[in-house]
Computed example of a mutant assay.
Amino acid sequence: MPELPEVEVSRLGIMPYVEGQTVTEITIRQPKLRWPIPETLQQLKGQVIRRVTRRAKYLLLETDVGTAIVHLGMSGSLRVLPTSFAPEKHDHVDVTLSNGRVIRYHDPRRFGAWLWQEGDLPHPVLGNLGPEPLTDAFNPDYLLAKAAGKKMAMKSFIMDNAVVVGVGNIYANESLFCAGIHPKRPAGSLSFVEATKLVDEIKTVLAAAITQGGTTLKDFTQVDGKAGYFAQELRVYGKSGAPCPACGVTLERMVIGQRATVFCPQCQPL
């Protein structure tokens, strides 16, 4: 599944071709995605896309009358192509632009979404979200306050979008390893020193992944069709049974919240 860095890379990729362009046509070939595509999405037609922004893992195409909200789901991707390119299988949505290009949404598993937010009214999918991890609002004091008294596993805690958005499974594994925190530790046991280290590592890991183009998994490619390559630098994710890159002890695997979790029993003591 594309995580925050992959979605941010997609945003950066389409932004130069999309901002300031007028939408001339909306073509929906498959209206049944994670949720049915609302008819109100047609309000995008005739509008100028003022900004392409991101909230959590949602891409936002902002216009004067409302905002198209796009989620890539498990296997979704966006391309900016000349309108002469014929659609292929699983190309479900086209947004045709006045510059002769089309934003094409491809999603084999159809777990993504296209939604419409009327005016400035907040859409329900954007409600109750925590701060963006790369902003100053996500800081040690904030994290400690949210963790106070909580017994849930640290990994589940930092993956909770009500705590902080966009720390998916890959980057939760990587950040906890870099911070030296066991993924099953109760969130409420976090010290200020540990919270400071964890916040710093989450920011560092996510920023590095964005800079390097997003993580290559089987489903993700960038807007230009090139795969991201941060996967080459993952330290623990997907590497159970391999030696720890820091101490050489064998990395172990467990399941937390139905997600694969890899950690070093020596560098991340419980």
Results as ranks from 00 to 15, higher is better:
Ala242Val: 02
Thr215Leu: 01
Val164Thr: 07
Ile170Cys: 06
Val163Asp: 01
Gly188Thr: 07
Gly166Ile: 09
Gly238Val: 11
Arg185Val: 11
Thr196Pro: 03
Lys239Gln: 15
Met159Thr: 11
Gln232Ile: 00
Ala208Asp: 12
Pro186Ala: 10
Asp200Phe: 08
Phe157Met: 03
Gln232Tyr: 06
Val236Gln: 07
Ile170Thr: 05
Ile170Leu: 09
Ile210Ser: 01
Gly238Leu: 10
Glu201Thr: 11
Asn161Ile: 07
Arg235Asp: 00
Ala207Leu: 13
Ile202His: 06
Ser175Leu: 10
Ala209Trp: 09
Lys155Arg: 14
Gly168Ala: 12
Ala231Tyr: 03
Lys151Ser: 13
Gly168Asn: 11
Gly241Ile: 14
Gly166Trp: 04
Gly238Arg: 06
Ser175Asp: 03
Ile158His: 01
Leu217Trp: 03
Asn161Gly: 04
Tyr237Met: 11
Lys239Ser: 13
Gly188His: 09
Thr196Lys: 14
Gly149Thr: 13
Lys150Arg: 15
Gln222Ile: 11
Ser189Asp: 14
Phe220Leu: 08
Phe230Arg: 10
His182Arg: 05
Lys203Leu: 10
Ala153Arg: 12
Leu176Gln: 07
Phe230Leu: 04
Ala179Pro: 05
Lys184Arg: 14
Ile181Ala: 08
Gly188Glu: 04
Val223Asp: 01
Val163Cys: 06
Cys178Ala: 14
Glu174Ala: 02
Gly238Gln: 06
Asp219Phe: 14
Phe157Ala: 00
Thr211Val: 11
Asp219Arg: 13
Gly241Asp: 06
Thr204Lys: 15
Ser156Glu: 10
Tyr237Ile: 09
Val167Asn: 02
Ile181Glu: 01
Val199Thr: 10
Ser175His: 05
Lys197Val: 07
Ala231Asn: 15
Leu206Ile: 14
Ala172His: 04
Ile181Asp: 01
Ala207Arg: 15
Thr215Pro: 00
Ala195Pro: 02
Ser156Met: 12
Gly228Leu: 07
Asp224Phe: 05
Asp219Tyr: 14
Met154Gln: 02
Tyr229Trp: 13
Ala172Cys: 07
Phe192Ser: 08
Leu198Trp: 06
Ala208Ile: 05
Asn169Lys: 06
Ile181Arg: 01
Phe230Glu: 00
Tyr237Trp: 13
Ala172Phe: 00
Phe230Pro: 00
Thr204Cys: 09
Val199Leu: 05
Ile210Phe: 05
Ala227Cys: 04
Ile170Ala: 07
Ala172Thr: 04
Asp160Ser: 12
Ala187His: 05
Val236Met: 07
Lys151Phe: 05
Thr221Phe: 04
Phe192His: 12
Lys151Thr: 13
Ile158Glu: 02
Val164Met: 05
Tyr237Glu: 05
Gly149Ser: 11
Ile210Asp: 02
Cys178Val: 08
Lys155Ala: 07
Glu174Cys: 03
Gly214Asp: 02
Ala231Met: 00
Asn173Glu: 00
Met159Glu: 08
Tyr237Phe: 15
Lys150Phe: 05
Glu174Trp: 08
Ala187Ile: 08
Asp160Cys: 10
Leu217Ser: 04
Lys155Cys: 06
Gly149Leu: 13
Lys151Gly: 01
Gly188Gln: 07
Arg235Met: 14
Glu233Thr: 15
Ser156Val: 10
Ala179Tyr: 05
